[in-house]
Design a protein around this nucleic acid. Structure first.
Lengths: 180, 180
DNA sequence: TCGTCATATATCGAGTTGATATATTATGCA
DNA sequence: TGCATAATATATCAACTCGATATATGACGA
């Protein structure tokens, strides 16, 4: 399930422009799947070439033309087919944990600040998810996904608070051994 | 903190070959940061060109030459410098949640199987982390990172078990509306 | 004997990010 | 009034990364 297929799936639910698809990727989806214009626009072009999408180009006054994409019947079949395949494993890249690998090399104050900051960031994310899903418009699927994000980020915050001492006892206690 | 810098950091802790670095990325690190040969070998070459690494090429009987990389003093400084920068946000791509977006389009049996499989996969990961960190050799940092992984995956399993009904009530109850 | 795993390096196509370019209108704010 | 910034809308590009593949050889078990 790459971005190309995910665009096809989103258009199966509702026709949209590339710009609107990008907005969708900035909603609840953003917590577990990101996509940039640099992948979305080429994906839409390729899907159109392949006959899985049609493009209705709408001239607008005072705005660039809108290209509204809709799924063809071949597109619907292709997407249903892609849904049958076993989804790949989660891919995670945490620069925070990567830096924590080197806790011993960091001055204690700096390490503690990094952990504080990360806890704040996760709390912000949780608050953000709450705002996104507070609306009456959220269906079961959206509720499920938002809840998933909250569960995971809450667990991360809890873990950091309960176990940060493991790292903080390892860090340089005010010394500057870092440059040795 | 890209793979290039992370290689430099690992070599700061211990000199190694590209092959050994790949092995390191397959340990506890693998749960939050992955790297392939296709990024590791070019990274080592570039770091060497830049004077941040030195390479000791050891001819071996009956084996390809080993290239053992060590960090130069310039390399140490460059890495300490990189550690000062605020780590970027976590990047997560979950194909599983992407597929769950389309729960309505899936036959109920298929959906349930997907969720069962994902719970099993997370449980396997937790068991795998336990094995990795059971050894006496694990230091505080490794313990911290393994614990983080366990906390997050446990929360995910718990959430899936408690909330799967939200999706399962949305799925096609045995019908084949999928192709409509 | 045959397959497969481990050791070891390397490359390449394809997918992706983040920045940047282009052009116009709307909005806030001093 | 003027000026910066955000929003609407599409598009491209260098740099990074993955997953597969290539190349060689030895060991180990079926």
């Amino acid at each position: 399930m790459d971005i190309r297929m995910l665009c096809l799936g989103l258009l199966t639910l509702k026709e949209a422009t590339g710009y609107e698809i990008k907005k969708t990727f900035e909603g609840p989806l953003s917590h577990f799947y990101e996509a940039s214009y640099g992948s979305i626009y080429p994906a839409l072009n390729k899907l159109t070439e392949e006959g899985l999408l049609t493009c209705d180009q709408q001239a607008q006054d005072k705005r660039p033309d809108k290209k509204v994409y809709s799924v063809t019947s071949a597109g619907k079949l292709a997407f249903m087919d892609a849904l049958q395949k076993h989804p790949g494993r989660d891919r995670i890249r945490s620069e925070f944990l990567a830096v924590m690998m080197f806790a011993r090399l960091l001055p204690a104050g700096h390490l503690s600040r990094l952990i504080d900051d990360r806890i704040d960031e996760y709390r912000d994310r949780i608050a953000h998810i709450d705002r996104e899903c507070a609306g009456v418009m959220a269906g079961e699927v959206e509720t499920f996904i938002c809840g998933y994000g909250k569960a995971v980020y809450s667990a991360a915050v809890q873990y950091l608070e309960d176990n940060r001492h493991l790292l903080e006892s390892e860090a340089l206690m005010g010394s500057t051994r870092a440059a040795e």
